[in-house]
Simulated assay, not measured.
Amino acid sequence: MENLLRVGVISSTHGVKGEVKVFPTTDDPARFKSLKKVMLDTGREHMDLEIQGVKFFKNMVILKFKGFDSIDEIEKYKGKDLLIWRDQAVKLGPDENFIIDLIGLRVVTEDGAEFGTLTDVIKTGANDVYEVRTGEGKDVLLPAIKECVLGVDLEEGIITVHIMDGLLD
């Protein structure tokens, strides 16, 4: 299980005083208000950053990090991921999982037949959609609703699904 979780991606700078616009990759962007630190994945190393200020603009989060006071200091980190440790993450409710824990799980039908591997989770607003690559190499989209996704067993690495009528047409 992955111990680092991505909560956002620096999309651009904001102003000239070292602020950045962050595209949140978390369900609840307001969670940035409670974060004190994040880890920046530079591609070569991980840097701990202390959050000094948080603002919101449209679908973006604007962050100010301690020690970065000009556009020149922060500009080189555009496109880089912001990570947190799993123990900093929002506590999940029943039947909730982190997407990173689902990717790569085996998908089986309710009668135990191999169906494929979960390759992506698409956020649609109404409900998530699971993208599953079948053994034949076909991509199938399954709605992540109780009628279709019957169970997730992270320890066994299996998602059990009911293939609803019309989903494979």
Rank of each mutant, 00 (worst) to 15 (best):
R44N: 15
F65I: 09
K64M: 06
L168H: 05
H162I: 06
L168K: 02
K80L: 11
F98D: 05
M39D: 10
D111W: 00
V9N: 07
G67M: 08
W85L: 15
E131T: 09
G151Y: 02
E73D: 07
G18L: 08
V107G: 02
E19T: 06
G112P: 00
F57N: 15
V9G: 07
W85K: 15
A113D: 07
R31W: 15
Q52C: 10
V108L: 05
Q88G: 07
V121I: 14
D128G: 07
T42W: 10
L142G: 01
I74G: 02
G104W: 06
I158K: 05
T160W: 01
K138M: 11
L118C: 04
G79S: 04
F115M: 06
G116R: 00
V108C: 03
I163C: 01
A126G: 10
P29H: 04
L40R: 02
E110N: 14
G43Y: 08
P143R: 01
G18Q: 07
R31K: 15
V149R: 06
I84M: 03
L141A: 12
R6T: 11
V9D: 05
F68T: 03
P143S: 01
F98M: 09
E156A: 15
E96P: 07
I10T: 08
G137D: 01
D165T: 04
Y130Q: 10
Q88Y: 13
L4V: 11
E75V: 15
S11E: 13
E2C: 08
V132Y: 01
G116L: 00
V107R: 00
D27P: 13
F57L: 14
D87F: 12
V161L: 06
D81F: 10
I51M: 05
G15Q: 07
L105W: 02
T13R: 03
R44A: 15
L5D: 03
D48F: 13
G93S: 11
S34M: 11
G125M: 08
E131P: 02
Q52S: 14
G151L: 03
E155K: 15
F23H: 10
F65P: 03
M47D: 09
L40N: 07
V140T: 05
F68M: 12
K55L: 14
E45H: 12
V161F: 00
E45V: 12
L105H: 02
K78D: 10
Y77D: 03
E114D: 13
L141F: 11
L142N: 00
V20C: 01
